[in-house]
C-alpha cells in the first residue's frame, strides 16, 4: 500500500537541518500503523511528506504503486480527494460551513451528486454518532464532536489510506478513547489503511504496529499481539528506552 523508500528531508536555511534521513519502511493494505518518537524526531515531517503536503529532499514515496512525488498539481488534487483522508490535531474544519457541509466537502470538490452526498453523509454520521449536530456550525460543537466530524470528512469518500496527525492531542481522555475506537472499527470493517502520528501511548496502543523514530532515523518497531494492555506496556518501555522516562512524554503536545 505505502512504500517509503529511502527518504530524506533537509530544511535549507542558514544552518541546514536534516529532519529525516534515509527513512525506509512499508505499510501493507489494511494495516494500522502508529508513528511515535520524542518531540523534534521528525514524526510530523514524515506524515507531511506522505500526505503530499511537503516534498522530500531525496527518495520516493509510493502509494498504491503510484509515485506521489511525480504527480502534477491537478493529478495530486484528484489523488488527495479520492485516495487520501486526513485528520488533524486541531481538526481544521472550515468554520464557514456546517458540520454536514464540512463532511461532504471532498465530494463537493469532486462534483458528486447532491443526493449521493447526502446519503453518504447520513450513513457516516450515523456510524460516528453525530447525526444530531449535522446542521450546527463548527463553533457550536465540542472538541470530540469536531474530531468526529473531521473523521467523517476524512472517511466519506472511502479513501484507501487515512492519515492522522495527533488526532487525540486536543481531546480529553474519554473523547480520545472514543475517537481511537472509531478509527479501529473503521480499520477493521472497511480495511482502510491507517497511519497515525502520536505522542499518546494509549492512542498508539490501538495500532497494529508502532514505528519509533528518533532524530530523524528509524529506531525500532513493535507489533501488537492479542492483548492491547501488554502492547501498551511495550510501548511505554520502548519510549523510556528512547529517551529518559516514560513520563517525559506528555499525552498532549504543547
Amino acid at each position: 500500500m505505502l512504500n517509503v523508500n529511502q527518504i530524506s528531508k533537509i530544511y535549507e536555511g542558514k544552518i541546514a537541518y536534516k529532519a529525516l534521513s534515509d527513512i525506509h519502511f512499508t505499510i501493507e493494505d489494511g494495516e494500522f500503523v502508529g508513528i511515535m518518537g520524542p518531540s523534534g524526531s521528525g514524526k510530523t515531517t514524515l506524515l507531511n511528506l506522505i500526505a503530499t503536503i511537503d516534498e522530500p529532499t531525496s527518495g520516493q514515496i509510493l502509494i498504491n504503486g503510484q509515485n506521489i512525488n511525480q504527480m502534477k498539481k491537478n493529478e495530486l488534487a484528484r489523488f488527495r480527494r479520492r485516495e487520501l483522508g486526513f485528520i488533524f490535531q486541531d481538526f481544521n474544519l472550515l468554520h464557514t460551513l456546517t458540520v454536514q457541509e464540512n463532511i461532504v466537502l471532498p465530494l463537493t470538490l469532486d462534483g458528486s451528486k447532491v443526493s449521493e452526498m447526502k446519503q453518504k453523509a447520513a450513513a457516516i454520521a450515523e456510524k460516528l454518532g453525530i447525526t444530531s449536530i449535522m446542521d450546527k456550525r463548527t463553533y457550536e460543537i465540542s472538541g470530540g464532536q469536531a474530531q468526529r466530524t473531521a473523521i467523517a470528512r476524512a472517511m466519506i469518500h472511502s479513501p484507501k489510506m487515512l492519515l492522522a496527525d495527533e488526532p487525540t492531542g486536543n481531546l480529553d481522555s474519554k473523547s480520545a478513547r472514543d475517537v481511537m475506537e472509531m478509527l479501529e472499527n473503521i480499520n477493521r470493517e472497511q480495511q482502510t489503511t491507517m497511519m497515525l502520528v502520536t505522542h499518546d501511548p494509549v492512542a498508539a496502543s490501538y495500532c497494529s504496529r508502532v514505528i519509533f523514530i528518533r532524530d530523524g532515523q528509524l529506531y525500532s518497531e513493535i507489533h501488537r499481539g492479542d492483548n492491547r494492555q501488554a502492547f501498551f506496556q511495550k510501548i511505554i518501555d520502548t519510549l523510556s528506552l528512547l529517551g529518559g522516562h516514560s513520563n517525559d512524554i506528555s499525552s498532549i503536545r504543547l
Partner: peptide
C-alpha cells in the same frame, strides 16, 4: 491557511 486546507481536501488549483 484556508486555501491550504481546501487543497488538502483535494481542491485542484483550477477549482
Amino acid at each position: 491557511r484556508e486555501f491550504g486546507l481546501l487543497m488538502m481536501q483535494g481542491m485542484s488549483p483550477g477549482q
